[in-house]
Nucleic acid binder design. Structure first.
Ligand SMILES: [Mn+2]
Ligand SMILES: [Mn+2]
Ligand SMILES: [Zn+2]
Ligand SMILES: [Zn+2]
Lengths: 159, 159
DNA sequence: ATATTAATGAAAATAATTATCAATAAGGAA
DNA sequence: TTCCTTATTGATAATTATTTTCATTAATAT
């Protein structure tokens, strides 16, 4: 069954791979597909299981290796939300620029993506980065902002 | 040699322990002492080794257990800077309120504490927290802000 | 189609953290 | 102080996420 995988229209990230001399393999394509289709914050094992449904030959090692590669290429971000495993998400889709921050419930682990910034916030962030860059001679590439606390459910159930 | 440890003036956190019904033990006192005396971001093993110099009977398990306790009491913060081990620091000393953010070099792992906020930053942060609390019914307890990039050394050595 | 070699996956190795459990010592009562 | 209760400890074993190894496979250029 030739063409079972990878024969569709070239994806937006093919160029990125080619430019770096990396091969476009079936595992890599499906891992990216899984990341693209999920709105959650997937762990390596989550990804492994999802890929496994589509391509059972996948190995967990390959998932880790590919995630590492994607991080270095800047295509995904790696997060630690305190549950003992790393979690990953696409840094930017072809669609919307998905920059956002996180609200993390320290009781149940729920994660809320927070995207509705105000101009004021973005402006100040830019200004702060500039200030820090100069003062510490630090070349800032990106940032994370996380708010910890109790989600609605956990907050009310604790009274 | 009675009074070898723990006979000095009562520390600021003794009340916190008593209030929770926790016992004030030698390991706990020395772990807090080590955290208090260090300006670095110590890992559990770092702490274990430092405590071991003062109190060789210490066990690594106790370090982990105590750190967990201190986190739950709100006396320390736990951070992940991406080097595979958690790092800890006192959340507030008796001296200065030490709230700060971090610059993290993704090349050499250097961590820079950043404390020189502007009023504008603090104000906006407060405002943002209030907005998020309301919109997502999320009870915000604290936050982390981390900037990733290249430190001076790594930035220049890469040209 | 063939050659080259990057990429893969099974398995073993690592390393941080957690669980177990008998021994110890903190803190209250006498 | 001395004794009692039980929270705390530390040695050890267990767990678990991630890495390393290495022989096999498959993506790409020719
Ligand atoms: Mn997110
Ligand atoms: Mn710090
Ligand atoms: Zn919750
Ligand atoms: Zn550096």
């Amino acid at each position: 069954m030739p063409g079972r995988w990878g024969r569709g229209p070239a994806k937006w990230w093919h160029g990125e791979f080619r430019g770096c001399g990396y091969r476009i393999t079936i595992p890599r394509q499906i891992i990216l597909q899984v990341l693209d289709e999920s709105k959650e914050h997937l762990s390596a094992e989550d990804i492994y299981l999802k890929v496994h449904n589509i391509y059972p030959a996948i190995g967990l090692t390959t998932v880790y290796r590919t995630l590492d590669l994607l991080i270095n290429m800047g295509l995904i971000f790696k997060f630690d939300f305190g549950d003992g495993r790393a979690r990953y998400e696409l840094s930017r889709g072809p669609k919307e620029p998905s920059h956002h921050h996180h609200l993390i419930c320290t009781n149940c682990g729920r994660i809320i993506d927070y995207t509705d910034f105000v101009d004021e916030e973005l402006e100040l962030l830019k200004k702060t980065e500039k200030k820090l860059s100069k003062k510490y001679s630090f070349e800032i590439k990106n940032h994370t902002i996380q708010f910890y606390g109790l989600c609605e459910k956990c907050s009310t159930s604790k009274e």
